[in-house]
Every structure is written in C-alpha cells, then in structure tokens.
Design a protein around this nucleic acid. Sequence first.
DNA 1: TCTGGGGTCCTAGGACCC
DNA 2: TCTGGGGTCCTAGGACCC
Length: 434
Amino acid sequence: MPPDASLRPPLFALVDVNNFYVSCERAFNPRLANVPVVVLSNNDGCAVARSSEVKALGIKMGAPWFEFRDLARRHGIVALSSNYTLYGDMSNRVVSVLREFSPDIEVYSIDESFLRVETLAHLHGDATAMGHLMRHRIGRWTGLPVCAGFGATKTLAKLANHLAKKNPVFDGVCDLSGMADAARCGWMASIQVGEVWGVGRRIAARLEAMGVRTVLDLATTDPKMLRLQLGVVMERTASELRGVSCLELEDLMDPRQQIMVSRSFGSMVRDLAGISEAVAWHMGRAAEKLRVQGSVAGAVYVFVQTNRFRQSDPQYSAGVVIPLADVSDDTRALTGAALTGLRHIFRKGHDYKKCGVMLMELAVKAQRQEILFDDAGARDKAARLMAVMDAVNRLWGCGTLRSGAAGNSTHWAMRSENRSPRYTTQWEELPVAH
DNA sequence: TCTGGGGTCCTAGGACCC
DNA sequence: TCTGGGGTCCTAGGACCC
C-alpha cells in the first residue's frame, strides 16, 4: 500500500441494477419470480424493461406492446404499467447503500451509479471483493440484484459492468483494472464496438466502415484520425479505453439546465381546451421540479404534435419559445406563458397525440437580478403559496393541489392499466404480510 | 385501436462586429 | 476590374445516454 493514497491511479466502479423496473416489481411480488415479466412505458406503449425470460423470447427493448401482445398471451408474459413512484424510491435506497461504500458518487441514472474507489477498495481486500460485498448488501437490504464493473476510467468501468452481466464466469463482478494486459485485451477483442459507452448506432456503422469492429480495435485506432473523422468525443472515448481518464464524476449539485415535461395523450385530442389542460398540468410538474432545484426560468417552450405513426393523417408539429419579462418559478406565471404560446401554435382540425413544456434559461434563484418596479411583497406571497402547494403535493401525491387551468377532466390522461401498488411511499398501499 | 420520456454535449453555419 | 479576415455569439440539429 503506498503511503500517500493520492498517488493511486483512478479507479471507477459502475454499479447498476439488473432489469431495474422488473426487479423492483419482483422485490414486492414473489409470484413474479421465474416468470417472464415486462414493464411498459407510459401509456402502456412499449417495453422499457424485460426480465431475462422475456429477452429470451426475442422481445426487443422499445418493442410496441400491441405488436407482441399475442406472443405475450401465448407465453404467459406478465405485462405491468410503469410505476415510477416505486422505482424512484427503490433507486434512492440503492444509492444510500452505495454511499456507504464511497462518498464520491455520481448517480448517473435511475438504476446506475459511478463511484470513485481507488482509496477504498483495498479496505475490502480488492475491487472484486468490494463488488461482491456491494452485491450482497444491496441484495439483502433492498431485494434488488446488481452487477459491478471496475476500471481505470468511467468508460472501462462501464465495459467491465457489461462483462459482469454477460459472462457468468464473473459472477456479477468484473475488475478490468486488476486484470493482466493480455486478458483485458482478450476480452476487449471479444466485444463489438457498438457496446462501448458513447458509441451509438450511427457511429458504430461509421467505425465498422473504417474497419474498426471490436472494442480493442477502437482502443488501438490512431487518435488523430478519430478526432478528424468523428470528433473530439470519440477521441476521448478511445483514450478512456486505453486507460487514460478523461471523464470525471459529475457534480451532483449542478442544477439541470432545462426541465421538460411531456406526455402522449391516452387518446387523441382535437380541441384547444383539452390540450390547454394538459399543458397546464405538465407545467405544474415542471415548475415543481424547478423549485426543488432552487432555480428560476427565463423562458418557456411549449409544443404540440400529431401522431407521427399515422402517416395517413395530416401531420402537424409546432413549438414556440415564450421569453418571460421577469424570471420566475411561479406555476401561475409559467402556465400563463405556456398557454399564450399554445394559442399561437394551435391549429384546428388536427388529431393531437402529444404536447409538452420545457423550462429554459434556468438560473439559480438566489442570484436573481433585481428589476425595476419590483414588488417584493407580492413575490413573497407567491413564494409562500408555491411552498404550500409543493408540500401538499409531496404528501398527497402530485397534482392534488394544482392550478385551475389544469382542469378536472382526464380524457387526455395516459393509460396505465396494470400498475402495481406504490408499496413504499403510500400508507394505503403498503404490502401486507399474512 | 394500440408506438415513452427526459436529458447532455458538440458542431456547423449564420449574424454581427471591428 | 477589383470585393479581407478573424473573432464571438447564438441557434439548430445531430449524436449520444438512460
């Protein structure tokens, strides 16, 4: 062990939950174990999480539900609507376990986190032992199965995680940094370049046209040429594959730069009134997110779309940015702006399928510029009203207290026909042990 | 009948300025 | 006839991620 821990080269871990949404459902419903389970997107539109049994049946990520519904019936697939309240809470539980392994953590998505562990892995013996302890502890404390990958860079940790998941020989934990060079190269030569984090479908096709087929090929391609042909991002990815760390953990405290809320309608909407309600509802959610991160918005974007899959229908899609005279986090002001924009872009005679809002030009509220004719009293009153609204909605569920513009009708609301109970966040829906 | 939602970063090109 | 060049800022669009 070197005397100065800061001399250790970086070591990243990537821990993620296998088939996250499906695993959350199984954690509370033992009857789902060992049967094929799929979780559907909003509106019960397409598959967003699949158990291994479902993957084995050849159902792809994103497959439309109506296309495999018959197949599902024949094979006894259990199809569940997504339950984001449950998944969000389970995600927090996993993160709190991981935080005990390293305070240096980036929650990358709802089901995966990066950790810096070079000064901590040896406390458990080595990285592999640390990974197994993570697996065991998260399994015991949350009921969720995870895999762990370790590498000298984030991209290598991602790759290691991929190996851990696909190759039973690793038993869910793979440490590429602790591997002999020859072994690491062997594994890298066995994986297609498209599996690399940052290489999507387009880039993969271009790389293959250049003769770069495997991960090892990419790692050994001339960086100058990569930069010239594919840009600085791919050059960085290749460096990361060679063990040169270019990507740091992202700061968790950084507020989002834009906030979007949009949904497809459960069924088509034709009238301005219906869309107005949906826009107001979405803005209520967006403004809530805005206040949680302590920001204000300088502009509002609102958009509407017809159903792009119904090519026989006349298509229409439009959006508009409404700048605000003064930055705001007040649901009423933001909704007013969005509805003004909506009236500008709405055209009669279309069957609308989707609408949404985006909050832009976000700034930290505490740094807000004072403007002329500022009414501090009114602003204080507005802040208190918003605080009450947020508190009520946290307690009773979102949308309990909302602006009148969001209305009471639900004909535009999304379908969610088979959602499991919110086991962990609603008293009435707690699981009961018999 | 039925096809999700929410983000980030980079680049190219135009507008504008001196 | 001859018609610069470099910098900055902004935006739209493309690519990626989950």
